[in-house]
Amino acid sequence: MGLVESGKMPKPLTSLLNTSRKYSLWIFQWGLACCAIEMGSALASPRYDVMRLGVIPLPASPRQADLVCISGTVTDKMVPAIRRLYEQMPDPKYVISMGSCANCGGPYWDSYSVTKGVDQVIPVDIYVPGCPPRPEALLEGIVLLQERIGKEDMAARWKGDPLVVS
């Protein structure tokens, strides 16, 4: 819409659209390693249910996902696949990097085959530390992301400006 690009969206409409976006995230769980099990506990277990936050797991493909949660060690061999799947997601898309391996290489920081952090490949919005982070930690990361989305400036994202978090 022309209103979004030019930044002339009225405030109530922006906040309505932001609210609807943050409570209808479809999370693509990219589980690589041990953090995938904790992510599975958060997403699929009845105890740490992520659906109560409005986030639904298990989209059929990355083309239908809003949010990708990269959990686990990223190796150099895996990087082309991550890049490709990130590019398949439609905008607006968000990335959560879960676990210390995805944040910075983690316990394998000196390995010859591990990428030291997934933010070398794709831009990350939220980092969830831990090895592995508890499911509650991932839920807190999602809540923080929702707060961030709520304050987002849609025009900046449309134009490609760097996002400034207030």
Binding site: L32, G72, T75, A81, P107, Y108, D110, S111, S113, V114
Partner: peptide
């Protein structure tokens, strides 16, 4: 395979025994 190859056997050579236990 190899998409999760983290190089354990090389990493154990530069760590002490308690550190290897963690890894």
């Amino acid at each position: 395979m190899g998409y999760m190859h983290r190089g354990y056997e090389k990493l154990t050579e530069v760590r002490t025994y308690p550190q290897v236990t963690t890894l």
